[in-house]
Design a protein around this nucleic acid. Structure first.
Length: 203
DNA sequence: TGCCAGGCCCTCTTTAGGGCCTT
């Protein structure tokens, strides 16, 4: 059972960029955060029913051979829907992951009730001096130790969770806040950069 | 590391174009 402040940070690896173009998920992972601590995690490869391109094999390290014996997307996504429950959701460039989550769950008649917030949109506002706002760059920018390989779902979701916690602590520190609610993070992600400082000062 | 899309965001903007970010 999830608590009221449960948050799931998730990441997909896929056959490409667009479910509307026929792309499918090949790996899903998520870590559950409660009170800033990772309390559970989920990771599974899934068989999209067709071969993945050489580009995707190289980009993710997930090969066609690895996917042959993986469970079908329908099976894995059902398990993942159970995992996320009613938790709110975070992903880096969430519009991408949300499209695949919506598409894969629609295929099995499942849905979710949590709300998405994008860690990239928050990072663009909190770390305006970062060289860029790719996940790997931000992890380095804020000096989070990284000894794994990016572009795998579990590692990326773990790193996104650490970045998320770092951003929360940074905002709390800068504005003398405690226990920032999810709703404020949603608001930060939508607030124009030029208005952000004033909005947080007034909060 | 690229192409495919889509949302966000900036600007030499809003009757638009292009970069960023995700795989």
């Amino acid at each position: 059972m999830t608590s009221a402040n449960s948050l799931v940070v998730l990441d997909f690896e896929t056959t490409g960029l667009s479910p509307n173009m026929g792309d499918r998920a090949i790996e899903i992972a998520g870590v559950r955060l409660e009170n800033g601590q990772v309390v559970d995690s989920f990771q599974s490869l899934m068989n999209p029913g067709r071969r993945v391109s050489g580009f995707i094999e190289d980009y993710t390290g997930i090969t066609n051979e690895m996917l042959v014996d993986a469970s079908a997307c329908e099976t894995v996504m059902g398990e993942f829907a159970d995992f996320i429950g009613d938790a709110n959701l975070v992903a880096h460039n969430a519009s991408f992951d949300q499209r695949f989550l919506d598409e894969e769950l629609a295929r099995i008649g499942r849905s979710y009730t949590g709300e998405f917030v994008c860690s990239m949109l928050v990072a663009r506002r909190i770390y305006q001096d970062a060289p860029n706002h790719q996940l790997g760059t931000l992890i380095k920018h804020v000096n989070i130790p990284a000894d794994g390989v990016f572009h795998r779902a579990l590692y990326d979701s773990q790193m996104t969770a650490k970045l998320w916690q770092e951003m929360l602590e940074s905002i709390e520190s800068r504005y003398a806040l405690e226990n920032i609610p999810f709703a404020l993070l949603k608001k930060i992600a939508r607030t124009p950069k030029k208005n952000l400082h004033k909005m947080l000062q007034a909060y």
